[in-house]
Write a protein that binds this DNA or RNA. Structure first.
Lengths: 178, 178
DNA sequence: GAACGATGTATCGCAGCGATATAATCACCT
DNA sequence: AGGTGATTATATCGCTGCGATACATCGTTC
């Protein structure tokens, strides 16, 4: 996931770690942490895999005097990898965490993959919804009051999310045959 | 978190790993995974710490013939530990994951701690809400359409959650002076 | 009697987080 | 000129927790 996010961001421009983290935090901070403890190891991993490379030390006046910073840029393998991750978007793509990340890069995502992700996500949320419904109806009265509250609230919010996803999907479809 | 959940469950009755996991899955499966990959290591950790002990091998007719299973029960230190975790409920208590777990054990939680957790959680969700609001108003038009969708949806759902928490808090208060 | 699904314990490697260390630079104040 | 704190910046540590997988045993069904 982190890997996907970094590759996605580096499509815009070469960046150094701190900046990547700041952009991620701005883009998805409300949904995930994106801590340095994952960032730097992931960058190194990507570099070792040849998906990103360190740009030569900047000598430009603009950056002169600044603390040493490593600016990474995407290689063609990196771009391929990003495309691959999209093409093979599977079950683990539609869980809570990664769906948001994918949505954030939707404008860089082919329309058919967008649709697959949205529908996969919907199925996933619908399954959670059914689990919650079943939990709430089964054994009617003998559930702890607070647990019941939690589940009702969860049910309501999954219902809303399904409705929201339906709107997104409808919008995609209407755009498809413009 | 896992530790807290296990200690909480074991207050009800001694249990073996599989059963603990099943109960957790039933109780909070819609919100967290509770995989075996965490369960068994955590059990061992709790055992080493003296918070739980293995009950002597059951010889009862009921369980005879069943596959070897290790039934754990809470020690007095374990009970203390659970109470401590509640008493010291702090910032990491009100994040998404652990709040649900705590709510599931609210009937075993003192009223004042309940209130502290609910209010902490509310503050935490309010902060996320403010972040999302700020993100959506700032730089008005230049946000990616899908990212905007994600943030609007997030904002709406945090707003709902705050309202829900307010209701829970009000209910607690009304019960307090019954 | 064999196939299958539920019960049951356990481990492996990986992703990601929070806390922390370290440093240089910048903005501001005095 | 000097001090102070916020911001920029890279990096590591230990920990929690997950998914996948392996391996047995049991009950049920065909």
């Amino acid at each position: 996931m982190f890997e996907f996010a970094l590759l996605g961001l580096l499509h815009e421009a070469p960046m150094h770690g701190y900046e990547l983290r700041k952009r991620l935090h701005d883009l998805l901070g409300a949904f995930r942490a994106f801590s340095y403890g994952s960032l730097y190891p992931t960058l190194r991993r990507l570099q070792r895999a040849g998906l990103i490379v360190e740009e030569g030390p900047e000598e430009s006046a603009l950056s002169w005097g600044r603390r040493a910073r490593k600016v990474y840029k995407l290689t063609s393998e990196g771009k391929e990898r990003f495309a691959d991750l999209l093409a093979n978007a599977g079950p683990q793509t539609w869980d809570d965490d990664s769906f948001g990340v994918h949505l954030a890069f939707f404008s860089r995502t082919p329309a058919d993959v967008r649709m697959r992700i949205l529908e996969g996500r919907r199925r996933c949320v619908e399954e959670r919804r059914e689990g919650l419904r079943e939990r709430l109806t089964r054994t009617g009265e003998q559930i702890d009051r607070y647990t019941r509250e939690l589940h009702s609230q969860g049910l309501e919010s999954t219902e809303r999310e399904v409705r929201w996803l339906n709107e997104l999907i409808a919008h995609e479809k209407s755009e498809q045959d413009e």
